[in-house]
Design a binder for these strands. Structure first.
Length: 341
DNA sequence: GGGATTTGACCTTA
DNA sequence: TAAGGTCAAATCCC
């Protein structure tokens, strides 16, 4: 009986997911069009860009709702998510790739090797520009596991923080130089037992080379009757949210599964299945043992301060129209009305 | 050999 | 001046 209900629910959800996937494909096509039609000043694509953002928002909210529902009776997964959109997001969300802040040292065909070729921009100059970036999209999330947001990150620094037990790790987009992507993030372990990581994102990705389209794992519990994972992929490379929407570009924060080197890496361990939800945080993701998703542990299993450049674990979060106070995420009625659930 | 990581130094900000 | 953020040379790893 219970298994039958579970099967029906899974079937219905699968259909819903199919519809979402279809819609997502359409959105992707729109993205492609956008990428081909961006004018120099960006004005031409504003309306279509907004449309694309709305589409993606819709899917995101739907998926979030699905995930929320799934978690209502799923004791297997607890992942804490928190997003904060800081005040300046509304005024500086659009990254201008033509800005000199994106490094005059870059040549057109440059890659990493070109970093030091040009000295057109001094260190000081760049730091001045950095100030602006730090006031752009900024949001955080706290997770019980290191997560993969679908983008390729390169660690560029680690700093011991005063009054903090664990050092802070600094990451920038791998495509910072080749595609002038300014996204950075900071990852810091904030709690030992259970482990808790705070990831702070700065700016959003303007690069197009996702290591893999971010995938959203909706339901991959370990309980009997659940034998498959539901994955969604999102590629928001061209979906720069406009200022009107004071929401974080969290398309980029969708969970994804990094494929390379996972299978054989002994430092990888299955996703957390039982985590104490001591903090009354929102449950927004699932994981499982049958999927290729893993949580990355540090090379030294006893040293989680040295975080890898990437991480795994199906975690996603959203907060369109949400108010977040501490670890509590709340949504207003409009969201649910729009969702038509 | 090339890309990624580590880590001390440098720079900015409060 | 202390703390945090970034750079870049050295080193590691595949």
């Amino acid at each position: 009986m219970a298994s039958s209900l579970t099967a029906n629910a899974a079937s219905g959800r699968q259909k819903l997911i199919e519809q979402l996937v279809n819609g997502r494909e359409i959105a992707n096509q729109l993205q492609t069009l956008l990428s081909q039609s961006i004018s120099y000043d960006g004005s031409v694509v504003d309306s279509t860009e907004d449309l694309a953002s709305n589409i993606m928002e819709s899917f995101t909210n739907t998926l979030f709702m699905l995930n929320q529902n799934d978690n209502d009776d799923d004791p297997y997964e607890v992942v804490v998510s928190q997003i904060q959109v800081q005040a300046a997001a509304a005024t500086s969300s659009h990254v201008d790739n033509r800005s000199p802040c994106l490094d005059g040292r870059i040549s057109e065909d440059s890659g990493e090797s070109c970093r030091s070729v040009s000295t057109a921009m001094t260190r000081k100059d760049r730091r001045v520009c950095d100030k602006g970036r730090k006031t752009a999209y900024t949001w955080q999330r706290k997770t019980t596991a290191l997560i993969d947001d679908g983008h390729a990150w390169r660690k560029y620094g680690q700093k011991r923080i005063i009054k903090s037990k664990h050092p802070r790790n600094y990451y920038r987009c791998t495509h910072k130089y080749e595609q002038k992507c300014q996204a950075t993030k900071q990852v810091q372990k904030i709690q030992d037992n259970p482990p808790m990581y705070k990831t702070t994102y700065f700016g959003h990705h303007t690069c197009t080379n996702l290591q893999k389209s971010p995938e959203l794992v909706l339901d991959c519990p370990t309980s009997p009757g659940h034998d498959s994972c539901m994955l969604f992929s999102f590629n928001n490379s061209h979906l720069n949210l406009k200022s009107k929407q004071a929401a974080p570009p969290f398309f980029a924060s969708f969970a994804s599964v990094k494929q390379e080197s996972v299978k054989d890496d002994p430092t990888l361990q299955p996703c957390i299945n039982d985590v104490n939800n001591d903090n009354n945080n929102n449950v927004v993701s699932h994981n499982q043992t049958s999927s290729p998703d893993y949580v990355v542990s540090s090379p030294d299993p006893h040293d989680h301060d040295h975080l890898p450049a990437f991480d795994h674990s199906p975690v996603w979060s959203s907060n369109f129209d949400s108010d977040i106070h501490g670890d509590v995420m709340s949504f207003d009625d409009n969201l649910f009305q729009r969702m038509n659930f």
